[in-house]
Simulated assay, not measured.
Amino acid sequence: MNIAFIGFGKVAYTLSRLIKSPDINFLTSTEKRSNDTIDLINKSNIEVYDSFREALENAEIIISAVTPSKAVKVADMYGPYCNGIYLDLNNISPDTSEKISNVVDNFVDGAIIGKIDSKNPTLFLSGENAHKLLFLNDFLNVNIISDNIGDASKLKLLRSTYTKSLSVLLIETYDLAKKLDLEDEFFDTLSITDGDDFKDKSLSRINNTLKSSKRKAEELEEILNYFNSDELDMVNAALNKLKQF
């Protein structure tokens, strides 16, 4: 089986390492890719084609792993070359999932829950063809939500509404603690109620948010565009703060 990636960042890189089977071959292209992306592709030791069209036409499964703002454009460009399943793993809204479903055959709505490089990453899937990807359960935790396109994206948005807003609040509180020279005591205090590993998890969340603030801001914009933004005061505030990082 050939699986082709559109986009090759952390998600594609990690999946290519997680899904190890002699029956699965990964494909992609360096066409119009940055030097950093090309370096990551070379580290992955996967099959590289001169063009995405060639790679996609040779694949039974296509995985789109780009930024949310490019998801529809990528589907428009490369969807016609899809001969099998088209799996979108971008943090997009259900409305965006519907748009992609309208231009791509055999579409599956996907959402990675939590960090892709965690010990047991979880993949939510929805759509009539989601069951065709159950073989991935041999490599990560696969949860089929329903046959409805958009349901996986809805759950991802709900989770992101909470986690990304909370991450911004955590950064603000941590900055206050540092100004007061009480950062260790701050984590010690919260660890009493939130567990001994709270500090390590919090610092990881802070670093991840700061490193990928632009992408996380795009994800919050997807949330505000889908839900009634007038009712999401905390999300609006988190978005404004992310844009300052």
Rank of each mutant, 00 (worst) to 15 (best):
L27H: 05
A130F: 02
A217N: 07
S97C: 14
K179Q: 10
R159N: 06
K178W: 08
V72N: 07
A111G: 05
L242K: 04
D151G: 10
K199H: 09
S97H: 06
K32N: 01
L125G: 03
A238K: 00
T209P: 02
R159G: 02
S101H: 10
K178E: 10
F124W: 12
V11F: 09
S51G: 01
L133T: 11
N102Y: 13
N106P: 07
F187E: 12
V74D: 03
D147V: 02
T193D: 04
V66P: 13
A71P: 14
L170Y: 08
A75P: 04
H131S: 10
N148T: 14
N106H: 13
L242A: 01
L56P: 13
T161K: 05
D105L: 05
F8T: 14
L242R: 02
N91W: 03
K243W: 11
N129I: 09
F8M: 11
L220K: 05
K241H: 02
E60P: 05
L125Y: 01
S153T: 14
N137P: 12
I149W: 06
N2V: 14
G7K: 06
D151F: 04
V104T: 12
S44D: 08
K43S: 12
R53S: 14
Y162A: 03
N90W: 00
N45V: 01
A238D: 02
D105G: 05
T209I: 09
